[in-house]
Design a protein around this nucleic acid. Structure first.
Lengths: 173, 173
DNA sequence: TTAGTTTTATTTATTAATAAATAAATAAGG
DNA sequence: CCTTATTTATTTATTAATAAATAAAACTAA
């Protein structure tokens, strides 16, 4: 019962979810609006009743994903020395609960639509600042560098997932 | 005078170079064979005289790029304690000398053509093994984890370049 | 004149997007 | 209630554009 609790609102959420799964697996260009519609069980033009273009649909999914990420990095609490690990775990949990959306977000920079690139840029900018700030507040030395490494680590996890090369993330142990 | 030194061979190289630039900037799907041709100054169907499909052209560019990367990581020499830094510098040099190709290679995993994904997978697999082996030979402890971090770092540099967010790579200093 | 190089002309397929029609649900009035 | 009006939900039919790929012709130079 979030914004409105109508049948149409429900459809909109279903479309977002189907789109997340398809965009994550097949990318922006190889996902057709017809496939999204088919997955939900409606007709292709009906998708445009909720989103005025394919790009707008993609951006809606992407925003949902990045909001989750920013939120998680904002609320994670831990004793200062354990903050980076705790935030890494928070990301990992997100990845396991919302795999499609998160993979989508971590690969969005490879989608060359200007609006997508710009959105992605602003999100990484924001995430970098927030994470760095928190590292600094926790008294972690060299917070900027640690933040870069933290983000690189996230990219690496997403890569390992998307090409199915689990050996890349063997840090367990 | 590599394989053959004919005019056509020359054209093939020009096409590869134009394709690298366009694929790196606009990605696989938003780059048309017509634009590649126009950049070289030939007609669109002529591209198919050298590469039997757009995918084959893309894979040829990708292979050239990944061969450079694997080669660089193979030949870099340094005293054991400086090996990771030296290899990082080698990658950075590659990125500055062959920017288009290297960015292409670092984002290829987001191109959902099965052949591209599989190729990318096999290259990262190979790179991981080779880097880890060299780290181990240099007596670096926890070589597997260090290799993962090394790759994550490379992904992060490519991201920073592609979305133009230089703050991500402020480790200089 | 023949092999190598390149173009013109054309096809075929795909897909986002629009417009207009229909059906189902809800509400209002007698 | 029962029928008419109105909104909400959804479909059918269609367009318009784009782009990869093929085939065959033509040019060029040795």
């Amino acid at each position: 019962m979030t914004p409105k609790d109508t049948a149409a609102q429900n459809r909109k959420e279903q479309i977002l979810e189907a789109a997340a799964a398809l965009f994550a697996e097949f990318g922006y260009y190889k996902t057709t609006t017809a496939e999204v519609a088919r997955k939900v069980g409606v007709t292709q033009p009906y998708v445009f009743h909720f989103f005025k273009s394919k790009e707008e649909l993609y951006l809606a999914v992407l925003k949902q994903a990045t909001d989750r990420i920013v939120h998680a990095f904002t609320i994670t609490e831990a004793p200062p020395e354990q903050l980076p690990e705790a935030m890494g775990e928070a990301f990992f949990e997100l990845l396991s609960n919302y795999r499609n959306e998160i993979l989508l977000a971590m690969m969005a920079h490879a989608t060359p639509e200007p609006a997508v690139r710009e959105f992605t840029r602003s999100v990484f900018d924001q995430v970098y600042d927030r994470v760095k700030q928190r590292f600094e507040n926790a008294g972690i030395p060299d917070a900027g560098r640690k933040t870069s490494i933290f983000i690189g680590h996230g990219l690496m996890c997403a890569l390992a997932e998307s090409i199915q090369l689990p050996k890349l993330l063997h840090w367990e142990q």
